[in-house]
Design a protein around this nucleic acid. Structure first.
Lengths: 147, 147
DNA sequence: CTTTGTGCAAATTCTTTGCACCAAA
DNA sequence: TTTGGTGCAAAGAATTTGCACAAAG
């Protein structure tokens, strides 16, 4: 398990330090598109000497080596994704969750644009997620009476 | 001209102050997806008392009233667009320019996602623009000799 | 022993907030 | 004369930088 993850990093030219493994583990175990702070807070107890700087450094390295994606759907913080296959991101304006939206193939456009060289296309969708949309529908169907 | 712009703001529930008109003018005259600072720097000479706070306030108002778009393709700064019809944005990693990419219709997906309510979809593309791609091709074709 | 990684503290940058003054309805 | 707009200065938050020490090849 740990060996597998180690190999994964090495394969992408990343020396597998304790911190880097822990951060990669976190990304691959939690598909929540975490912020730097979320990662730091989660891992900190296990690696008490960990610093935010290292988390920043590591994520920057991961992105440059192509094992993580930088997601800019949240205006406040940078978010990161260890799942690197093509998919869109949906951000719910009520609960704030960021949900993966699979691309069915037809949407994988813009790999070529006359004369331009496309590296990467990101699709960000904003609105209400299923749960929040449902709650809204319910609260509208049975409005709270105001006296 | 000024009357037209005034009417445009009023139509969208925005009181047309000098500052707001100037900022909307700037957005509609420069399709460069400017940052707050770029707008501030450009307009400041004509309105010497202008503050960055007002630019922030105004852009937030514009976005909430639907006359401007918030663009998060640039990791460093918020960028804004006065052109509100659907199009994608391309950011060149060399020159940094942000270029509009028209959507041919087929790409205007994600207006409905089973159960979710979609407000807005943004498509951000990164790579090399035509000019920078050309320059790169040329420099590779005629490499500088090193002695 | 030389290169690379980590982590602290300070600095920087972008954005927001609180508040007083000004302007328009 | 009340509501809304502007702008200064300060605060806040996220990220970067400089540097010294630690670890690994």
């Amino acid at each position: 398990m740990t060996e597998l993850r180690k190999k994964y990093l090495v394969k992408h030219g990343i020396r597998p330090s304790l911190q880097r493994m822990a951060i990669m583990d976190y990304l691959l175990d939690h598909h929540t598109h975490p912020t730097v702070d979320e990662i730091y807070t989660a891992i900190s107890p296990r690696i008490p000497t960990l610093s935010r700087t290292t988390v920043y450094n590591t994520l920057k390295l991961f992105v440059s080596q192509g094992v993580a994606l930088y997601i800019s759907i949240d205006d406040r913080n940078a978010r990161f994704d260890g799942v690197i296959d093509k998919h869109a991101h949906f951000r719910c304006k009520d609960c704030g969750r960021i949900i993966d939206i699979p691309l069915s193939g037809r949407e994988e456009l813009f790999t070529e644009l006359q004369g331009m060289i496309v590296d990467y296309t990101s699709i960000n969708i904003k609105g209400l997620c299923k749960l929040c949309a449902k709650q809204k529908r319910l609260s509208q169907a049975q409005p709270i009476l105001k006296y």
